[in-house]
Design a protein around this nucleic acid. Structure first.
Lengths: 346, 346
DNA sequence: CAGGTCGATGAAACCGGTTACATTGCCATT
DNA sequence: AATGGCAATGTAACCGGTTTCATCGACCTG
């Protein structure tokens, strides 16, 4: 068989009707042959497949989606794409999707809940189901834009009044475990907080406060970026009455903080102990390696995707709507000496 | 206006005909009003939008895509999703897509060119154009599966005999610059190679060889994973006649190598200098910080996405088909002392 | 007031697949 | 030989939008 000629760009696209005509059969038969239904003869299948290959035919997914009401795609809406955290989220979702032959549509809301709403709106007809990570505390906009007939699973988010499945991390318990570990140094513990109006930020801060018996030693405002952690680190380095430890609401801020401290000659953990949250892959690579709270990010999104597939398939998951994971404290060099056992957060 | 009732799951989805009926107008008018065409009266628009909101109507993207032949989505097919490198690729593409109000569909071929072909095939009708990163040296399978009418831009790939735009990094020049820098140490330079049958691996290895005047001091086989770099590092640590430097074909292998060397008490750069390729974000965070070749990954994929948009728009780009970037050597602690100037790769 | 112009609206075709239902032809059964 | 059953195939409706074209009515003009 000779290789088919590439058609010139701009030519009318090849449709299944072209294939049917070329093979001398009806479009129905062509469709059946192409989809491998067993009610076609081997001869018919061969003719259709031959014609399809000869014409370089590729089915039009939108047309198929319209008539079958399936897209074989699941959507993932994230607040941002920057950094390892979201990379891990995507990887986990991809793993689960791929294992079931599904595609992954990634979309971001770039920290804006209205953009998140727009992203969600445009998912109808594009995906069979949606994974949504939306840490915005004020969730009304989202609830108003979630199509009722689009299966949805939430990750580290809460939208009240909707019966959606959700996968969460116990941010409060994780933060408490980290801060309690840091208090073993015997001094004040500062906190680099995440962005305001962010559900996870707030929970971690609450854990910090509760671990200190309800009082906050020192809170510096951050926004989950390495840069904001760096600024906090500079401030710490310059303080004369410096806290004995600092708990950052995520790893990237902790890392920024480490860089600032190193730059100013403040020793970690000798002068100040540092801990983060998430256990992104860099945490164990940086020096000193970072004590943090492991949330098994990729695993969380993988499980969320699997649950989503179940919801799409119509399985009844009423008895397992919300699944909360207890994260685990991982003690590394940045706080070594305080405790040599990496215990559970519980 | 009262908040609309959520419909029970499983109910028939709301279509534009429902909206038209509710508003008492034709579907044509409903469509025009919803899409903001200017040939409808303000009163008409108000009635239609009101009905849409009341019914919680969301347009079905596949249906729209079918009739308009546009999806407002661009596809990105990557060989893998693991690690910061691909995270950066995705981020750059997302940046450009979002700036134009486009969606991003991410798909992976998981290192298998047949899976890559399958991914490409299924893109027809799902996206308006495709960004393809396919480092597989044997590219026939891909060429056979690229729909002729789907605009495509290649990233760090080459598919001969197709008039596709392509964005590449001059891997050969970058590798040569790194290795020449390492030879300043005055000893043998080993190489941790990337996976076989990979275009970028081969080019970097060729650069390594040419920098040494055509002879390879020592080549260890890797596969771009941190783990394979770690194994190479262990081997190096145990050699009695150890090379003076090692050039890894990417950063993750270099980092694995650094970890193994540190574990075995081999000092970097005092005992052996190390360099990588890519300049992933971790490279500057790890200690010793990693000398590497900066490819501005996110920038590359951003520009590729912008070029793709131009191709989709039908712009003539015949005069700028292939764009090759000259990467820049970034000297950091892992090879400090050999040279204190970070020069261009040229 | 007749005739023409123009802007708003509606009816129906179309995008490219899938599939319910009708039809055909072949074979076994009586 | 007539009948029934069944498997293979074809016809046409349908999915949910957009868009062409026709229609309608208001307004302007001479």
């Amino acid at each position: 068989m000779t290789r088919p000629e590439p058609r010139p760009a701009g030519a009318r696209p090849i449709t299944i009707r072209d294939v049917a005509r070329e093979a001398g059969v009806s479009v129905a038969s062509a469709s059946r042959a192409l989809n491998g239904l067993d009610s076609v003869t081997a001869q018919m299948r061969e003719r259709v497949l031959g014609a399809a290959q000869h014409l370089r035919y590729f089915p039009h997914t939108a047309a198929r989606a319209l008539s079958t009401r399936r897209t074989d795609t699941i959507g993932l809406v994230l607040p941002d794409l920057h950094g390892e955290f979201f990379s891990e989220v995507i990887r986990g979702a991809d793993l689960a999707a791929r294992a079931r032959g599904l595609h992954l549509l990634v979309s971001t809301s770039h920290g804006d809940k209205y953009e998140a709403a727009a992203a969600i709106r445009s998912m109808r007809g594009r995906v069979d189901g949606l994974m949504l990570m939306s840490p915005y505390v004020d969730e009304d906009v989202l609830a108003d834009n979630l199509a009722d007939d689009l299966p949805t699973v939430l990750i580290s988010s809460r939208i009240e009044g909707r019966p959606n499945a959700a996968f969460c991390v116990d941010n409060h318990a994780g933060a408490m475990a980290a801060v309690k570990h840091l208090t073993a140094c015997g001094g004040a513990v500062a906190h680099i907080a995440g962005p305001a109006n962010n559900f996870e930020s707030e929970e971690r801060r609450r854990g910090y406060r509760d671990a200190l018996g309800g009082v906050e030693d020192l809170v510096m405002q951050g926004d989950f970026s390495e840069e904001s952690g760096y600024r906090a680190g500079l401030r710490l380095a310059e303080m004369k009455d410096r806290p004995r430890a600092v708990f950052a609401a995520n790893d990237m801020m902790a890392i920024g903080c480490l860089l600032a401290l190193a730059e100013r000659g403040v020793r970690v953990p000798a002068d100040i102990a540092v801990a983060g949250f998430d256990d992104v892959p860099v945490a164990r690579l940086i020096r000193p390696s970072l004590t943090t709270v492991r949330t098994a990010i990729a695993d969380l999104s993988r499980r969320a995707a699997e649950r989503l597939v179940a919801v799409i398939a119509g399985e009844d998951i009423a008895d397992q709507l919300v699944e909360t994971t207890l994260p685990r404290l991982v003690v590394r060099e940045s706080s070594a000496g305080n405790s040599n056992a990496a215990g559970n957060a519980a």
